[in-house]
Simulated assay, not measured.
Amino acid sequence: MPVCPNCASCQTVKNGRIHNGKQRFKCHECGRQFVEHSPKKVIDLGTRELIDQLLLSRISLAGIARTTQVSEPDLKTT
């Protein structure tokens, strides 16, 4: 079984499939549902806090993407 990306627990179980047929898993420790080898990038907490501060400073998304090295589509989902 894959390791949970949220809490690094090995106690995961299969939990159905997503719309394109990939296997979905659920962690027993934290309850998070995830897909193994997901193309979605997980942004760490320190970078998220920096992004929030830059947004409050009214810096453009393109500028934030360059400084934090996070793509613009990933910025829009955070």
Rank of each mutant, 00 (worst) to 15 (best):
C10Q: 12
C4V: 01
K41G: 01
H28Q: 12
K76Q: 12
T12G: 05
P73S: 06
I43D: 01
T47K: 15
T67A: 13
T67Y: 09
T47S: 14
D44H: 12
V70E: 00
R58N: 15
T47F: 10
R66M: 09
Q11V: 06
L50D: 00
N6L: 07
R24I: 00
K41I: 14
V13I: 13
H19T: 12
N15E: 08
K26M: 09
I51F: 03
S60C: 09
T77I: 12
L55K: 09
R32F: 13
C27H: 00
Q53P: 00
G46F: 09
K26F: 02
T78H: 06
R17V: 10
C7T: 05
I18C: 06
R24A: 04
V35Q: 02
F34Q: 02
R48E: 13
Q11L: 13
C30S: 12
G46L: 11
M1W: 08
F34L: 10
A65D: 04
I18F: 00
T12V: 15
R48G: 08
L45E: 15
R17H: 12
Q69Y: 06
Q53K: 10
H37N: 15
F25Y: 15
Q11R: 14
A62D: 11
I59E: 04
T68R: 01
V3S: 05
N20C: 10
E49W: 09
C7S: 07
S60Y: 07
G46E: 15
G16T: 07
P2V: 04
N20G: 05
V3E: 06
P39L: 08
V3M: 09
C27I: 03
L75S: 03
H19G: 10
A65K: 01
H28L: 13
R17K: 15
H37F: 15
F34E: 03
Q33P: 00
Q11H: 14
A8D: 05
E72Y: 03
G16Q: 05
E49V: 13
N6S: 13
I43S: 04
Q69W: 04
Q69H: 13
S38A: 14
S57T: 02
M1R: 10
H28K: 14
G63L: 03
K40A: 13
Q23P: 01
L75H: 02
L45F: 11
F25C: 01
C10G: 10
Q69A: 12
P5L: 04
A65N: 05
C27L: 05
A8G: 01
T67D: 06
Q53S: 07
G21C: 08
C27M: 05
S9F: 02
N20A: 06
H19R: 14
M1C: 11
V70C: 04
S57M: 11
L54Q: 03
T47I: 15
S57L: 13
G16Y: 04
D44Y: 06
V42N: 13
Q69K: 14
Q33A: 07
T67W: 05
K76D: 01
G31W: 06
G31C: 08
T68M: 07
Q69S: 13
S60E: 10
R17M: 08
R48Y: 07
I64L: 10
R66P: 02
K41M: 11
G63Q: 08
R17P: 00
